[in-house]
């Protein structure tokens, strides 16, 4: 994808912002991103930037807010309501959610049922890795019955040539 500002370099910085209910997207190369103050900790306003293309105008100091590119949910609204706007929001806000999830749940990794489309051959969503950790814990705590059960489960999920 091409940079929206210089129309030359490859865009590596992708930004989305909601302004007056309208979603604005801009793709920038490293150089232009830097020149436009994207790296500036104070941030910038996307709309002003779009309007100011090539005019060398002063970049606004309003902090840029993390926004879901699919539904337009903003970090502020998410924080306020505690609800996400769509599935893609988990890509946008998910990274910082580990602490929240740790407080809410038993773990931070899903180990249950998987829909057909997500069952990729050769990928097990970290389940074997998860089971191995629990196996070690069970052995350390001398819970041998549980350890045996976990070992069987790992065996079932691992192809014979790579089995432990």
């Amino acid at each position: 994808m091409q940079c929206d500002v210089c129309k030359q370099n490859k865009a590596t910085v992708f930004l989305t912002q909601i302004e007056k209910g309208k979603m604005q997207k801009v793709n920038l190369c490293e150089t232009c991103a830097h020149a436009k103050g994207v790296a500036d900790p104070k941030g910038f306003a996307l709309v002003e930037m779009l309007h100011g293309f090539g005019h060398g105008e002063k970049v606004a100091t309003q902090p840029q807010e993390r926004t879901c590119p699919n539904c337009g949910m903003t970090q502020t609204t998410f924080r306020k309501t505690g609800r996400l706007g769509c599935g893609a929001c988990y890509q946008t806000f998910g990274e910082g959610m580990d602490q929240l999830l740790k407080a809410m749940h038993k773990g931070v990794r899903h180990t249950g049922r998987v829909p057909a489309w997500a069952k990729v051959v050769g990928r097990d969503n970290g389940r074997v890795e998860d089971l191995r950790v629990r196996l070690e814990e069970a052995v350390a705590a001398e819970r041998y019955e549980e350890a045996g059960r976990l070992r069987d489960e790992i065996r079932q999920l691992t192809p014979p040539e790579t089995a432990v």
Binding site: G94, L100, P115, A118, R123
Partner: peptide, 27 residues
Amino acid sequence: LDGLVKFAFHPRFGYLTACPTNLGTGM
């Protein structure tokens, strides 16, 4: 239903729900 529609799912978070308290199994 899984054979008829595509459910929102993430390999680490599981089934995706509006409220994070239902995330994962959604159960």
